[in-house]
Structure formats: C-alpha cells, structure tokens
Design a protein around this nucleic acid. Structure first.
Length: 204
DNA sequence: TAGGTGAGTAACTGCCGAAC
DNA sequence: GTTCGGCAGTTACTCACCTA
C-alpha cells in the first residue's frame, strides 16, 4: 500500500482541490465561485493559492475565457477521481438495497440499444427492485458523457471509445451486424471478404 | 475601412476584519 | 500570528459606436 505523507498533506487544503475542479469545469472564476458558493474575489484568491501550490499558472486569461495550461489538464482527471473517492467514502449514505429503494434512475441511450436492453432490464427490476423507476432518454453518445458530468444522467449505455478516467465503464453485451446485398448488382459472391465490403458503397 | 473612445465584464490585488 | 473571504479599486479585454 502507498504510504501517506501526512506532514505534506496536512498543508494541503482539500477545499483548494474542490475550487480547482470547479475552475476546470466552469473555465471562469466568477462561475466557479458561484458553483461552490464563494465570492469571485475569494475564488481568485483560491486560484492564486493553487498556482503557488502547483507552481503553474493553471488557468490563463484569453479572448475566449480562462484557458487551462497543459499542467492543469493533466491534473484535472486525477483530482476529480480523488474528489469522487473522498465523496464516496465520507458522504456515503446507508448501503444501497435494491429491494427497498424507490429511486428513479436516469438513463441515456440510443433507440436501437433501448430495444435490445430495456425489456430484459425491466423484467429483472420487477423481480429484484420493484420500487425502482427508469427515466429513459434517446441521446447520442457524445452528449451522454457531457450529461453524466453535469449530473443530469445516472447511466449511459452505448459504444464509447472515448471518455475520462472518472467515467466508469463496464461491457454490457456484444452485438453483431448483418450485411445485406445484391450479388448481381455489386458483382461479388458470398461469403464476402472485408476487402469486398470496404470496396463498395454501403449504409449502416 | 481603420482607428479612437467609452461602456461593460471579468480577473487580479491590496487591504481589512473575523475566526481560530 | 495565521488563514480565509469580502470589499473596493485597478487592470485587461471585448464590443459597439462614432468619425475621418
């Protein structure tokens, strides 16, 4: 296990990391201050302390608002993951019991995935979590990541080849596609190869 | 069209008081 | 004595408007 440097960590104010996360999220001192209930001046002081702490400008003024430095971008994910873990450890409520909860989960997913996943999920919920409600929204995968960060979605289901460290991912199921074609028109004969498939125009 | 000017907005900074 | 946050003034920047 990694040892804790208590002497140095004692000098680190956790609120500064909260301020850092708000600044990276809002890209504005004023909005970041409002986000965590401080005045603009206090957030400006926090930014100054963060700059001293990390020895980097972190955010610089630009024509389009506050621009994060490479150092700030490198710190963004580790800080957010750390804050999430602290939040889970410190603010965790009583253990989640699916059989008694009446929580409503907001799920973002594509229509095609809804057809494949939701009937089975609803049947399962009736058995083990009868009080759970689902609020489904048809949404593209890029917006899903944004809305997860904003807290307007609890879960996103889709094909994700991008995302941040704090986006937890689990394989849900595998799927395959059927390719329909007219051998006469395309001048190919089954079974088609990958080269044949890529050579001709097609729609998905 | 280019340059000057003023208003508005946002960030920075010095100073101060409160809390510990 | 130290730290934190707010107040007030300053600075930097954008944008709209006016004029040559």
């Amino acid at each position: 296990m990694t040892s804790i440097d208590h002497a140095n960590l004692a000098r680190l104010d956790l609120n500064l990391l909260v301020a850092f996360d708000a600044l990276l999220t809002e890209r504005s001192v004023t909005r970041a201050a409002a986000r965590i209930g401080l005045g603009q001046s206090a957030m400006s002081h926090n930014l100054a302390r963060l700059r001293t702490l990390f020895g980097d400008e972190l955010l610089t003024r630009g024509a389009d608002g506050m621009r994060p430095t490479p150092r700030a971008l490198a710190l963004a994910d580790p800080v957010r993951v750390t804050l999430s873990q602290i939040q889970a450890a410190v603010l965790q409520r009583e253990a989640f019991d699916p059989s008694t909860t009446d929580r409503v989960f907001k799920i973002g997913l594509a229509d095609s995935i809804e057809v494949a996943v939701i009937p089975g999920l609803v049947a399962r919920l009736r058995q083990v979590a009868p009080g759970v409600g689902l609020r489904l929204r048809s949404i593209n995968r890029i917006s899903i990541l944004e809305e997860l960060d904003a807290g307007t979605l609890d879960l996103g289901i889709g094909v994700f080849n991008q995302g941040q460290i704090h986006h937890k991912r689990r394989p849900l199921y595998t799927d395959s596609f059927i390719c329909l074609f007219n051998p006469t028109q395309l001048n190919v004969s089954p079974p088609i190869s990958l080269e044949d498939y890529l050579r001709v125009p097609h729609v998905l």
